[in-house]
Each structure stands twice: as structure tokens, then as C-alpha cells.
Write a protein that binds this DNA or RNA. Sequence first.
DNA 1: GTCTATAGGCAGATAGAC
DNA 2: GTCTATCTGCCTATAGAC
Lengths: 194, 194
Amino acid sequence: MARNKRGDTAETILDIAEQLAQTLGFSGFSYADIATRLGLTRASLHYHFPSKAELGRALIVRYRVRFLQELAAIDHRETAAPARLRAYADLYHQVLRNDRMSLCGMLAAEIIALPPAMQAELRTYFEANERWLSGVLREGSAAGQLTLRSLPEEEARVLLGSLEGAMLTARAFADSARFAGAAGQLLARLQPTP
Amino acid sequence: MARNKRGDTAETILDIAEQLAQTLGFSGFSYADIATRLGLTRASLHYHFPSKAELGRALIVRYRVRFLQELAAIDHRETAAPARLRAYADLYHQVLRNDRMSLCGMLAAEIIALPPAMQAELRTYFEANERWLSGVLREGSAAGQLTLRSLPEEEARVLLGSLEGAMLTARAFADSARFAGAAGQLLARLQPTP
DNA sequence: GTCTATAGGCAGATAGAC
DNA sequence: GTCTATCTGCCTATAGAC
């Protein structure tokens, strides 16, 4: 749903659900968890999001839209490909510093347990990410700022997966510096050797 | 517990629980799921594993022991570092072809929702993995078979995280070839350029 | 929009018979 | 070891009053 204006109850519900999903997983939280933190009853939540499946779908859609806005901001702020990639990795790092896992990385783990509509949205999210990364890698390669060892599309897949995995293992040790180190190395490998 | 001999009911319970945990996550399955597939009642399961937390702990311990046995087998079978790394990545690939996620990668996602004993076992598992990888990378580097861009320990962390992440995203697209492609690239980057 | 009340089911776990 | 029966609590979801 989430057809209301910003600042609305629906948005606040999504904020809380997002935090819970990124820390406990989608099957790891309940309407009761949200209701308690929001100071509402479970029944009221169902007014805004009739089913948990619809809440989950809205969660991914909003997350993707916001993420793409941030990517557009990076495109506007940074012009060089290496700087854009660093800014991209920084988005992940910020999430981790908030003691969260990437929403879609988390959901990808439990994808089989998710309703079909959420599975589809998840793939759309990853595809959009890879499309943006591919573009940055291609342009950086053409400009001589990056050295690719394979096609931009394939490098993008590897990079996306590697960053998600770096978050996953960093979280296991509750150490966001672990992520920063891994991200730095992954990007350094793309640097051209003069 | 799992204090019984192999082939026992306890082992079968672990087999089923392992498959469920690797596909749905630890909070994604119940004693009822295991009982149904095994043809027992929920109460009987509690005889073997009094609580789900103990079942989960036994799950990780057995998984780690088996995994380390496979790593020892690789050490015995392959002598060159690049071949050992390929065999290592192949272990992941086999898991994925069984439509499963790496057990500990899955559990790492939901680590905050896990009982403390499971969290500790999880870290032990990852540490053991990194220790083995570090050794292979160090020896391969010393033998001129691999080119490292940083310390073996750091390269090991990056590789472990990247492989886990490659599984995660490959699963989102239900495409194990995606993992194979990423793994191939990650290992190719370690190849010395003559 | 939010509430109370409640349905109906499933969760992990235990007691005690066999 | 496995069973039946049961407890307690939580889950998603709905009906209907305000």
C-alpha cells in the first residue's frame, strides 16, 4: 500500500519494519514487534498493510526507489568512475554502521520462504543495481580509469555479490571495519596499473 | 546433543534440519517440519534435542567438523594452491546445486536472532575457514603460484565473503551458473601475470 | 484511523503412558 | 524411544464499535 504522504503512519510503519527486517530477517519479526515500538495495536497495522506479504512488498519497492535516488545523487556528485564506486560501497558501509544488513541481501537469504511478489521485487532490485554498476564500470573502463578483466556486466555481478557477502561476514563478527577493508581491496583491484 | 552413533535418529534429524536451515533459515522451520518429514512426532524430537537452540548448535558443530574434513581431503588430493582454491569454491558450488545456501552464510544473515551459543559457533566456523584459506594463499604466494595484493589473512577474508555473497545473489536468481562465473573470476584475479 | 475482542492456527516445550 | 495429550504463548488476520 503506502499510498499516503510522507510522514504518515504508513511510512513510519515501513521505517520500523525495515529496521527489523534488516536485523532479524523478514520471518524474524511480527506485527506485534512493530505495534509495540509504534505505540499502536496490531489491528491498526492491518489497516495500513492488510497482510504481511503486502508490507514486505512495499518494503522492497520503497527501498529500491530510495536506493536508485541515492545512485542518481552519486552520479551527480561524482564524475569519475572510481569515486562513484567508492561512494557506492560507502552506502553499504553506512547501512552496516547502523547495525543492519543490506535489506535485499537479508531477504535474498530467506528468498524461498518469501511470498512470490517479494521474490520478484527482489530480483528487480538486484537487476537495477547491476545495471548501474555495469554502466559505471563500462564508462570507467572506456575513460581509462578502471581496468576490467571481463565484461562490465560480469564484473558488476561479482562486485555486487562480493559487497553483499562482505557485509554478511562482517556482521558475523560485528565488525564494520572488516567490510571497509574488503571493499577497499575489491575496488583497488579495478585500479589501472600504470 | 547428538551423542548417538551415526545412522541414528539424531543424525537423521540433523540431516533434515540442515536442509531446512539451508533453504528457509533457522527461524524459517519448526520441529513440526522435521517431524512430518521424518514420520515422528514433535515430542520425539525433543527427546533427541531438548531445545531448538541445542539443535541449532549441534547443526553448526557437525557442519564445521564435516567441512574441515573436506578441507583436509582437498589438502591431500591437490598439492597446488590454485587447484586447492578451485576445489574449495567447488564445495560451495555443490551446495548451491542442491538448491541450498551455505549453512553458515544463511545463519550469518539472521545472526542477531540466534541464541548466543549459535552465534559463537558461527564465528568459530568462519575463523576456521579463514585460517585454511590464509594458509593456502600464503603457500601459493610463496611458491609463485598466486599473486596477492595484500596479506594472506586479508585476502582470505575477502575471498570468503565474496564466495558467500556470490551464493546469496546466485540464489536470488535461482541460477548456480552465476556463482560459477563469479567464483571463476575471483580466483582468476589471484593468478600470477607472467 | 484506531480501538477491543476474538478467531484459528502454529510455535516450542513438558508430563506421563507404553 | 516414541507416543498422546496438553500447556502457554505468539502468530496473522478479521469483525465491528468508536
